[in-house]
């Protein structure tokens, strides 16, 4: 027991004192979280700039709420205003002749121009409704479904966390195995009166500790900075992450068993992890991906971790949604560990 504790302590100290490992396991993924969370959540909220020529009764009389997404400035010369529009300095120019509202827009920014046209159309429509005394018969309430309804942060957090866990566990196991084999520590430990299981067990414990730290820091930041909301069965991510850590450690073990140098092992781990992160939807959803790509992604452990986390922590599904992913991850760990044991060597 004291041998197991001292091995785990030695590995943990070795990790905490390795600034590069800390950076790649914790800081690097958080940079992506800040980037994705900060950039994508603000999309589409900036106001459309509109120039009003002379008096436009519809706008002047419109309720404040209807104008919330518009930034209206007034200008007397229509010619100058249209010049600004052509240059792209403003998004639309509005004037009123009698009962006709004229909206100039530029197709240069298609998204923006359609937003302006939609907003103006709605304002005219409600002005018409107000002018006639008949109450509205129909109203439209728009509701989106599935991941589109999830705010960006809700989608991005589980995926990036999955990627971070995959990196931490894979690189930790791979580097540990190769470094200890090349510096002779594995041989040295083999001559110590301790079972091999306590060496492996200590490494698993340290990797689980790293994964737990990553999870707490990640979810904490996403909740505090970006308002991530966890749904009902989110505690199921704990067994999910334990199973995933074992699966990714088995990838690292295999990379470490095959490679002769630390550089080779981390290179090989990178070669596996980065494409896997893209193909598993860690960075963007794969809903629109071709079928063959989705088939490949179903073979990847990270894909099942991501789906399990999305289902339980943001899509509001029950705990049972995590069961299959856990079974698949554990199966993956068993198979790859068995393969690694076949190619494992104690010394160079």
């Amino acid at each position: 027991m004291s041998a197991f504790k001292s091995l785990a302590l030695a590995m943990a100290k070795g990790f905490v004192r390795d600034k590069m490992a800390l950076f790649f396991a914790i800081v690097f993924p958080i940079m992506f979280l800040l980037l994705f969370g900060g950039l994508l959540t603000d999309q589409g909220t900036s106001k459309s700039e509109i120039v009003q020529i002379g008096s436009v009764a519809v706008l002047d009389q419109a309720p404040k709420a209807a104008l919330a997404t518009l930034d209206i400035s007034k200008e007397s010369s229509e010619k100058l205003a249209l010049e600004d529009l052509r240059k792209g300095d403003v998004d639309a120019v509005v004037s009123q002749t009698g009962d006709t509202l004229v909206l100039h827009y530029s197709q240069a920014d298609a998204v923006r121009s359609s937003i302006v046209r939609g907003t103006m159309g709605a304002i005219v429509q409600s002005a018409n409704a107000a002018a006639s005394s008949t109450p509205n018969t129909y109203t439209l309430k728009a509701t989106q479904v599935e991941d589109q309804a999830l705010e960006t942060i809700q989608y991005v957090t589980p995926g990036l966390l999955g990627w971070a866990i995959a990196m931490g566990a894979t690189f930790g196991a791979a580097a540990n195995l190769v470094v200890w084999r090349t510096n002779g520590l594995l041989r040295r430990l083999r001559l110590a009166p301790i079972p091999t299981a306590s060496i492996v067990g200590a490494r698993v414990l340290v990797s689980l500790g790293v994964a737990a730290t990553q999870t707490i820091v990640f979810l904490g930041l996403a909740i505090v900075l970006f308002g991530l909301k966890l749904t009902g069965s989110w505690p199921m991510i704990i067994p999910l992450l334990i199973a995933a850590t074992l699966a990714f450690m088995s990838i690292g073990l295999l990379a470490g068993a095959i490679s002769k140098t630390e550089e080779g092992a981390t290179g090989l781990a990178n070669f596996v992890i980065l494409p896997m992160a893209f193909l598993s939807g860690s960075f963007f959803p794969l809903d629109d991906a071709p079928t063959w790509l989705k088939t490949i992604s179903n073979l990847l452990p990270l894909k099942h971790l991501n789906e399990g986390m999305l289902d339980t922590m943001v899509r509001g599904q029950g705990p049972s949604a995590a069961v299959w992913p856990i079974v698949i991850l554990l199966g993956f760990a068993v198979v790859l560990t068995a393969v690694s044991a076949k190619v494992f060597r104690w010394d160079k």
């Binding site: 001292s6 302590l9 100290k13 070795g14 004192r17 510096n183 002779g184 041989r187 040295r188 009166p193």
Partner: peptide, 26 residues
């Protein structure tokens, strides 16, 4: 055993190396 290459735990101090090996042997 003292092996050909200096087989140590990474990033531990001299005292911590000795403590680790002492613990392995009780």
């Amino acid at each position: 055993v003292q092996l050909q290459t200096s087989a140590f735990f990474e990033r531990l101090t001299a005292r911590e190396q000795l403590q680790s090996f002492a613990a392995l042997y009780d």
